[in-house]
């Protein structure tokens, strides 16, 4: 017991009560600062701030839910289309899927060289939205737009404006490594129509490809994230960019 009390007394981890360690002028100023800090804090409408924060968070949750449902329906429709095409082709006696179509599960370009070739996991393409040629330069002028809003704050961010590329690295709350790279490149991917996006998995994480217009596509790589988090961040990114058109 005595030992514990001693440790407690020598620790720095407390705010010195006025009068115990301080005396004279120091104690007076200490008390004045505490009183003024309390008075100033009492002037702030913390209850109002809390209500606004909860309201904004609830609105965001509802919006995410709507987007998730919409994308879910899109995925389901795309999956039905894949099944339909497969059945139709089987009936016609054709065993392959035309290269370059939205249902092509092959890696789309050189960006996919790191994918696990024996076990490619690719989702069907879904329509996300487009960014016009005229606006895309303006939109990505600072490249700051290439960070998802819900990217963890613990990640250190870097922007390469010339290359239209953003990177972030850090760890999650449990200390696991997280990396994020996003860039806009010139070109047209074989297996995506304009406005469509698809995701693929490799050994490190999830790739998202989005043909934002005829001449440019966006590529985002989420490493160390689970599928749900990666998808949510890509949706947030795409949603904001499409909204900003």
């Amino acid at each position: 017991m005595k030992k514990e009390r001693k440790i407690e007394l020598v620790t720095d981890d407390f705010i010195e009560p006025p009068g115990e360690e301080l005396n004279g002028e120091q104690a007076e100023i200490d008390a004045l600062l505490r009183a003024v800090a309390d008075d100033c804090s009492n002037e702030i409408d913390f209850e109002g701030i809390k209500l606004r924060a909860v309201k904004a968070a609830e609105a965001k949750k509802a919006k995410r839910g709507r987007l998730r449902r919409a994308l879910g329906y899109g995925m389901a429709a795309a999956a039905s289309l894949v099944v339909g095409l497969f059945v139709w082709q089987a009936v016609k006696g054709f065993s392959g899927v035309p290269k370059g179509s939205a249902v092509d599960a092959e890696v789309p370009n050189q960006e996919n060289s790191g994918l696990t070739k024996n076990d490619p996991v690719a989702d069907a393409a879904v329509y996300v939205g487009t960014v016009s040629d005229d606006n895309y330069k303006v939109l990505f002028d600072s490249a700051d737009e290439l960070f998802p809003e819900n990217l963890p704050d613990t990640m250190k961010r870097e922007v390469d404006t010339e290359e239209l590329k953003t990177m972030a690295t850090g760890t999650d709350m449990r200390g696991s490594q997280l990396d994020y790279v996003c860039s806009v490149k010139t070109g047209k991917l074989d297996n995506l129509n304009v406005g469509e996006a698809r995701s693929e998995k490799d050994s490190e994480g999830y790739w998202y490809y989005w043909q934002i217009n005829e001449d440019h596509y966006l590529c985002a790589h989420f490493m160390g994230f689970d599928r749900g988090s990666a998808e949510e961040m890509f949706k947030s990114l795409a949603n904001r960019i499409a909204e900003n058109r």
Partner: peptide, 14 residues
Amino acid sequence: AEDITQQVFERAYL
């Protein structure tokens, strides 16, 4: 500072 406090707790809530 109030706006930032709101944003911080919006994130905390989410």
